[in-house]
Every structure is written in structure tokens, then in C-alpha cells.
């Protein structure tokens, strides 16, 4: 318990991941879903950095991967918020269930 190892960090990341998935499943608001995605990406980042620290000491590959995760998350959020604003302009709501006009 008193020596913090890889498993501890992975456990925290697992909780982050599951709550992200839960958020994505239950929220109807498009931006709420986006928040869930951010949680999932963060859990991936924690995993990568923890692996980097404990399994490959002295190497930086895990940190660089986490850096790319952060960059891609920023890009994804920018696009998704743009899409949400467009959705709101067209349908006057960001409820993802109402955005089904393309369905046959």
C-alpha cells in the first residue's frame, strides 16, 4: 500500500476511463458528450505517462505520446465545439437525439 507502483496509477486511469464512458453514454447534451471524451483521453494520458515512468525509465516515448494526445484532444475539441455551434444554429438545441434529420 505504501509504495506507489504502476498499478495505482492505472487504477486511477481506469476510474477516469469508466466515468468518461458513462458520461458519453448518459448525457444528451453534445458538449456533455465532449466532456466525457476529454475524460477518456486524459485516462489514456495518465496510462502513457505511468508506463513511461515505471516500465521505460530514462526514455521519453510515453511522455511524447501523451503530448500528442493532448494536442489531438485540443484539435478535436475545437472542431467539436464548432460542430455544436452549427447544430445549435440549425436546430436551436444541442440535444443529440433531435439531431436525427438525416435518418431515413
Amino acid at each position: 500500500m505504501l509504495t506507489i507502483g504502476l498499478t495505482h496509477y492505472l487504477l486511477v486511469a481506469a476510474v477516469l476511463f469508466c466515468s468518461g464512458i458513462f458520461t458519453m453514454m448518459t448525457k444528451r447534451n453534445a458538449i456533455g458528450i465532449l466532456i466525457g471524451v476529454e475524460l477518456v483521453l486524459n485516462s489514456a494520458g495518465v496510462n502513457l505517462v505511468a508506463f513511461d515512468r515505471y516500465l521505460g525509465p530514462g526514455r521519453v516515448d510515453g511522455q511524447i505520446m501523451a503530448l500528442f494526445v493532448i494536442v489531438l484532444a485540443a484539435a478535436e475539441a475545437a472542431l467539436a465545439v464548432g460542430i455544436c455551434i452549427n447544430l445549435y444554429k440549425n436546430l436551436a438545441t444541442v440535444d443529440v437525439d433531435t439531431a436525427a434529420t438525416l435518418r431515413g
Binding site: 477516469l16 494520458g45 495518465v46 505517462v49 505511468a50
Partner: peptide, 13 residues
């Protein structure tokens, strides 16, 4: 999570 990174000695991250 940023604090976790600090704990993992990944200051820059």
C-alpha cells in the same frame, strides 16, 4: 491529472 503528471516526474507534461 496535471498533479498526477507532476507526481510521475513529468513536469513539462
Amino acid at each position: 491529472v496535471a498533479m498526477l503528471y507532476f507526481l510521475l516526474a513529468a513536469d513539462f507534461l
